[in-house]
Design a protein around this nucleic acid. Structure first.
Length: 215
DNA sequence: AGGTACTCGTTGGCGCCTGG
DNA sequence: CCAGGCGCCAACGAGTACCT
């Protein structure tokens, strides 16, 4: 029997969080507008082993950016750079609201799903940071991954992976599903960790070769 | 009416090109 | 030979357009 895994797409205060729970290719649960406490409750109810979260697990600490983001950037996988907590608080645009919600998610999960601080799974119930665009790059290759077409491309990728997308209505649900898929790969030892202990790791599936989808 | 799809604004780091 | 300017592009959210 396969471990149950979860993926969380973190939104702002209005959209809140999307949660998808998978067992193998089966979607056991797909819900939106969840608070951090809701997420914890569902993951406990379904006896989830690993939770992939689409939000930074740590703020930047000093002047230099997080190592994980720098490593992704070196591979030309773009991401929004995480500021220090003080910088995020000082921003007036509200742009970083979702990162603060992510912080609350990790706090809500922490007691039952400890943040994975090593590159590989340690056998415990865990949560970890992941990132949909990097996941798509891992499956399809960086040249193919394109955020402009993400709504159709990510849906098609999930279908190619054998996951029924009928219950994954929104882009956010599909992103959460990709995070859950990454959790499954991580438990199977088929994941790559970007980053270091200080700035935190970003986990992404590791494949021998890219998937080619019909266009 | 509701859903889907697309654009724009926000932020910061890297690649690339050019000029001194 | 290196500094600096420009373009690109992740995430979300708000707004708009179009379709059923």
């Amino acid at each position: 029997m396969q471990h149950r895994v979860a993926g969380i797409d973190v939104g702002g205060d209005k959209k809140k969080c999307n949660l998808v729970i998978l067992q193998g290719d089966q979607v056991l649960l797909s819900v939106g507008k969840q608070t951090p406490a809701d997420l914890r409750r569902h993951c406990l109810e379904y006896e989830v082993m690993a939770v992939g979260v689409d939000a930074p697990c740590q703020w930047r600490l000093g002047d230099a950016g997080r190592v994980a983001e720098a490593m992704l950037a070196k591979q030309r996988i773009s991401s929004f750079s995480t500021p220090t907590r003080a910088q995020a608080l000082a921003s007036l645009s509200g742009f970083y609201g979702w990162m603060f919600n992510g912080e609350a998610v990790y706090q809500a999960l922490a007691d039952d799903f400890a943040l994975l601080e090593t590159p590989a799974w340690n056998g415990q119930r865990i949560c970890f940071e992941t990132f949909p665009h990097a996941i798509v790059c891992a499956f399809l290759g960086r040249e193919v991954a394109c955020a402009r077409r993400k709504s159709t491309q990510r849906k098609q990728l999930l279908q190619t992976l054998g996951i029924a997308t009928a219950t994954l209505k929104s882009v956010d649900a599909r992103d959460a599903a990709l995070c859950a898929v990454t959790a499954r790969y991580l438990l199977q030892g088929q994941a790559r960790a970007y980053g270091d202990a200080l700035g935190g790791h970003i986990h992404v599936p590791k494949l021998d070769q890219h998937i080619v989808m019909a266009s």
